[in-house]
Design a binder for these strands. Structure first.
Length: 748
DNA sequence: ATTAAGTGTCATGGT
DNA sequence: AAACCATGACACTTA
């Protein structure tokens, strides 16, 4: 706790100090304390504590800074939980902040500078509500998504009003603690919210069942009731999930109704409803999500600020109680001002801005609504920091171009990442990310191992043994699956002798595989093949004469039946005669021919003897041309037979290997997909943190007269070296446009 | 009787 | 060139 507080505060302090050094006056007053980490750490640092392992890597590569992970303890404590919740909440909105609404309402009356910007906050606030609403509203969404929405909605409810019937005091305390701890990490409070977790569990169940029961979740808990409060507009009585006003109403209504968060909710919601296609929904979702999270960040930051003025434990309660004139409110107002409802702020702080059309105040909303079509770029683009936090007016005019305004090193990546994520989501939905894979993924997550290539996962457990069986081929990545089984198998009778494709372990492996997979036919086949193989006859002489008869019932007594000189005297009892007849039937055609031609040696020898010995053998006997011809044919056919067997075996192995490779690749793909989503989430959260910090710092800046700077006129700009400058807005916009063009040109 | 799978053979091409 | 091997194609056998 303390460390967190310190962490954040120090970061902010340092940030502001840096700003002040740059020449901007900062209202930091009491916050001055100890060390001053690099600015980038202030900005990005908090996220490090938040991040997962991969994220560290990613971030490092992304921002180019070798930021060391901070708050290791926190990582340990929360990483696992966060990962899990993130995974489970992948499809859900995080709508952490409903509280803001209350703030705004209470705040309006306040004329003080600090409390004067309620409207801005409202816009975003309502947007969050919108988000929630949007999901359910759009019937296009799939069940999972709907669930996610439902959860989020619930979350909203749970989060907003502090008291939830189902939560015990302990629960609440725990949640608060966790939440506060995670403030710096940027996690939305819902992460720790009991009801939220409950929902998650429900969702998991539902996912497993393949069908969710959203309604149950909604009505089930006390938090649901809260959620319903949010969902149902108090003034309009409008039920968000069900229906929304026309989008068109927003522009007009928003300006006039800035003060009423509730109303804005109703107003904003329509924006979201606009999109209907799944893709748009996804985009929208992402937009809203990020915004919401950003908002959550704001709340968090405000809460963190609360730490200064109030006991840490009161942070939540303070938020809930919404004391109008508390320092918290001031903090909140700062955020809000930068976020959305700048209109009032302007009126208070910058008269010149006040003259702006009332409608302009709504622009804060614009990013939300319009962003639907413009996608994340407008909302999350690097420069969009300014856009997000600055007055709507500007956004309204420079909505599209505003993005690149700030040369945020992360910006481009983030944007792309966001887009990618969307496409990813689509991919996931379209492709293999069905319940099966999802469950599999979940499994892997639970196991805490990103890579579970265990062959047991695959429906056909063939893969494991197969992989081992073919040491030759393209089995590349599957090392994990097969490994041990093969090496020990060499004892099998599959000595293939002269044949080139001799993989000792192969036969056994196949057998094992078949046994496991039900490859019975193959099993018998290979057995036969093995026995048939002349090379094995040396080991199993009694099988020598098993021919093309599909049976192995070769009596040892039949040994060398053909080799023995015809009429070679041996007693023929009844049994023996029977056996002989049987054996004769079992003989291959070539054996019959050889017998008929009175060939003086076994086919085995004919076939498997090395050329030299074979020729020697031939030379030892006086053979007719016919006999010689037959012998050569027998040898040729015999060798070809083995070759064919090997060929087929090889073919089969190849097929099986390919099959396994496909499975492995599918697993890898799913894993990478998950990881990507994770990364994107982390990136988004990090960016939100940066944004909130930006907001906060900017909100604390004061000019010579002690007045805050107008977001519409000034913007903070990150320099490449990590410094931060306060520059005129126009200049920032210019630069943003410049930067925006570059990537486009590249594409061309 | 039909069919699919397994085998054996042949022709061909490569080593 | 001879010997071998690999493989596609075809035919036969068997279940």
């Amino acid at each position: 706790m303390l460390s967190l507080k310190k962490y954040l505060t120090e970061g902010l302090l340092q940030f502001t100090i840096l700003l002040s050094l740059v020449g901007v006056r900062v209202d930091v007053d009491t916050y001055l304390t100890s060390q001053l980490p690099p600015l980038r750490e202030i900005i990005l640092g908090p996220s490090s504590a938040y991040t997962q392992t991969q994220f560290h890597n990613l971030r490092n590569t992304l921002d180019g800074y070798g930021i060391h992970p901070k708050s290791v303890d926190l990582d340990n404590y929360f990483t696992a939980r966060r990962l899990l919740s993130q995974v489970r909440a992948l499809d859900r909105f995080q709508v952490p902040t409903t509280e803001v609404n209350a703030w705004l309402v209470h705040r309006d009356p306040e004329g003080s500078v600090s409390g004067s910007q309620p409207s801005s906050g409202l816009a975003l606030e309502s947007s969050s509500g919108l988000q929630d609403v949007t999901g359910p509203d759009s019937g296009v969404r799939e069940s999972e998504t709907e669930q996610g929405f439902g959860d989020d909605l619930e979350d909203l409810g749970a989060v907003a009003p502090p008291v939830s019937g189902d939560l015990t005091k302990e629960d609440i305390d725990l949640i608060d603690i966790l939440w506060r701890q995670d403030i710096d990490l940027g996690a939305g409070r819902e992460v720790f919210d009991y009801s939220h977790r409950q929902k998650e569990q429900d969702v998991d169940k539902e996912l497993r069942d393949g069908r969710g029961e959203q309604e149950d979740n909604w009505a089930g808990t006390g938090t649901d009731a809260l959620a319903q409060d949010l969902l149902v507009d108090g003034e309009t009585g409008e039920s968000f999930p069900a229906q929304f006003p026309d989008v068109t109403s927003l522009p007009e209504a928003a300006p006039s109704e800035n003060e009423s968060p509730v109303l804005q909710n109703s107003l904003l919601s329509p924006l979201l409803t606009g999109t209907e296609s799944p893709f748009d929904l996804e985009q929208q979702w992402q937009d809203l999500m990020s915004i919401m999270e950003m908002q959550a960040m704001e709340v968090n930051s405000s809460a963190s600020e609360i730490l200064y003025s109030t006991p840490p434990g009161d942070a939540l309660s303070t938020n809930y109680s919404l004391a109008p004139s508390t320092p918290i409110n001031q903090n909140v107002s700062l955020h809000q001002a930068s976020l959305g409802g700048c209109g009032q702020e302007f009126s208070l702080f910058s008269p010149e801005v006040e003259s702006l059309p009332a409608a302009a105040a709504s622009p804060a909303l614009l990013p939300l609504g319009p962003s639907n079509s413009t996608s994340l770029n407008s909302t999350f683009s690097p420069a969009s920091l300014a856009g997000l936090f600055f007055p709507p007016q500007l956004n309204g005019t420079t909505n599209d171009t505003a993005g690149p305004e700030l040369p945020d090193p992360l910006g481009g990546l983030l944007d792309e990442a966001m887009l990618d994520e969307i496409s990813l989501m689509d991919l996931a939905i379209e492709e293999g990310f069905n319940p099966v894979q999802a469950s599999q993924l979940e499994e892997e997550f639970d196991s805490d191992s990103g890579l579970s290539l265990d062959s047991s996962h695959s429906p056909s457990s063939l893969s494991g043994s197969e992989g081992s069986s073919s040491s030759s081929s393209a089995s590349t990545s599957s090392a994990s699956s097969s490994s041990s089984a093969s090496s020990s198998a060499s004892s099998s009778f599959s000595e293939e002798g002269a044949v080139g494709y001799s993989s000792d372990s192969e036969t056994l492996d196949l057998e094992e595989a078949e046994g496991a997979v039900g490859y019975q036919p193959e099993y018998s086949k290979f057995c036969r093949m093995s026995y048939q193989d002349p090379s094995q006859l040396s080991c199993l002489p009694y099988l020598e004469h098993v021919g093309h008869n599909h049976t192995y019932n070769m009596a040892p007594s039949a040994l060398d039946a053909t080799e023995l000189p015809p009429g070679g005297g041996f007693k023929k009892g009844g049994k023996e005669k029977q056996a002989a007849d049987f054996l004769e039937k079992q003989m291959s055609r070539d054996e019959h021919r050889a017998r008929a031609m009175k060939i003086p040696f076994t086919n085995d020898k004919i076939i498997n003897l090395p050329v030299e010995e074979f020729n020697e053998l031939l030379s030892k006997h006086q053979l007719s041309e016919a006999q010689l011809s037959l012998i050569r044919d027998i040898r040729r056919r015999g060798k070809n037979k083995m070759a064919a067997q090997n060929c087929r075996k090889r073919k089969l192995d190849t097929i099986l290997n390919l099959e396994r490779d496909v499975e492995d690749l599918q697993r890898d793909k799913a894993r990478l997909l998950r990881e990507k989503v994770e990364f994107l989430r982390s990136l988004r959260q990090m960016k939100q943190k940066v944004q909130s910090l930006y907001q906060e710092v900017f909100g604390r800046l004061r000019d010579e007269n002690g007045r805050p700077y107008s977001p519409s006129q000034y913007a903070l700009q990150y320099a490449g070296d990590g410094s931060v400058l306060l520059i005129p807005r126009a200049l920032a916009d210019q630069q943003a446009r410049r930067q925006e063009r570059k990537p486009k040109d590249r594409r061309k």
